[in-house]
Design a protein around this nucleic acid. Structure first.
Length: 150
DNA sequence: GCCAACGTTGGC
DNA sequence: GCCAACGTTGGC
């Protein structure tokens, strides 16, 4: 089992939206970055735990935990011409983009980006760097540290 | 395959 | 709204 951090803009889809979704779960669509795609496609497994991180908002922070309930499958929005996520180069036969399904677990007392940056025990997490990855791995050690810290 | 131009992300 | 970082595109 592995640990991950998924970014989302709360104005678009917040952890509250996840909690209120049917079955408290959602297909995590719209990932259009190859590095993030490769994580989703190759490494994110059912049962993996996920930090939900709110970005592009007043207080960027890890705000809760979700669990992966379905491994990667083609993101249907890549085929939808009316979607912002449409990709003309993706075909049904060889989809370019995938998503996984996650289910809400619980809220955390927010672990702010400022706190993470100030925490000298956290050194590996990609958030520490000026990193724009929307899906990133979290080591077990740092997951535990962050959970304990929050 | 290099690299400049351009676009996007995301913190502040 | 600014701007740094960095990913993507496209000409050569």
């Amino acid at each position: 089992m592995a640990y991950w951090l998924f970014k989302t803009e709360p104005d678009t889809f917040s952890i509250g939206d996840l909690k209120e979704a049917p079955q408290q779960s959602t297909f995590w669509e719209g990932i259009r970055n190859y590095q993030a795609r490769n994580f989703l496609r190759d490494q994110v497994k059912v049962g993996d735990q996920v930090f939900i991180y709110h970005s592009s908002c007043k207080t960027p922070a890890i705000v809760g935990v979700a669990i992966v309930t379905h491994a990667a499958e083609a993101d249907p929005y890549q085929f939808d011409m009316s979607s912002d996520y449409y990709d003309a180069k993706a075909t049904l036969k060889s989809p370019r983009w995938v998503g996984v399904t996650i289910q809400y677990q619980r809220h955390l007392k927010p672990i702010t980006l400022a706190a993470i940056k100030a925490n000298n025990d956290i050194t590996e997490l990609a958030l520490k760097k000026a990193n724009r990855l929307s899906i990133m791995p979290v080591s077990e050690r740092e997951w535990d540290l962050l959970i304990a810290h929050g």
